[in-house]
Design a protein around this nucleic acid. Structure first.
Lengths: 100, 100
DNA sequence: TTGACGCATTATTATATTCTAATATAATTC
DNA sequence: GAATTATATTAGAATATAATAATGCGTCAA
């Protein structure tokens, strides 16, 4: 009946919390275009190294992102392609529709 | 280029915060089935009157819900039908897919 | 017009989140 | 192997969020 069953509400809310921050949401949006390393994410988000690293850690622990070390860099990507739909829905709500 | 433009990121993240709590997410899900009054929402969410009222106030201020007083009851409904897509996307991620 | 009901608001305390700064680690280059 | 680069981790202070309890306020019925 209800769209999200009671037993999944907690996980879903926790998932939302993993995205409910300017920096983390920005990271997710940029990663929709493909994997990026931390330094690149620093540039596009404007966050400090330490701060970004902590946000990335949270998103990793929450299962939103996965990472892979390549040489001395660490690349992050979105763990589940279904996040794209979530972002699209969010855009439909928060971007006055001829968004840009 | 990016799915949510920089200037809208803050509002979108704030919107996510408005939903990123068990009680608030539960409220939103139940309201997908139609408007409900506070007492009914108390029953379905299990929240205390005061606590629920505060969550409803937040969702109202954040533009997620609108309310309407009818006699001595206050009915709440979802402000924007586009939230349904958001919930569907969330379900796709957090409900192991033959959900229930 | 008093009492009960439905809801909102406020104050307080408890807890969680976020940021900055400092330090650590691992890979790379010289 | 010392310095440099890329990233992670920790500690601490600042701020935000959440819950409970108490009170307020409008509406209705008796």
């Amino acid at each position: 009946m209800e769209v999200i069953p009671r037993k999944n509400i907690h996980d879903a809310a926790e998932g939302l919390r993993a995205l409910a921050h300017d920096i983390r949401l920005s990271v997710l949006c940029h990663l929709l275009q493909g994997p990026m390393c931390v330094r690149e994410l620093m540039e596009v988000t404007g966050a400090s190294q330490s701060n970004l690293s902590q946000h990335l850690a949270k998103m990793r622990l929450m299962g939103v992102l996965v990472n892979e070390k390549r040489g001395q860099q660490v690349f992050y990507r979105i763990a589940n392609p279904a996040f794209e739909q979530l972002i699209k829905a969010l855009k439909a709500i928060y971007c006055p529709d001829n968004c840009r």
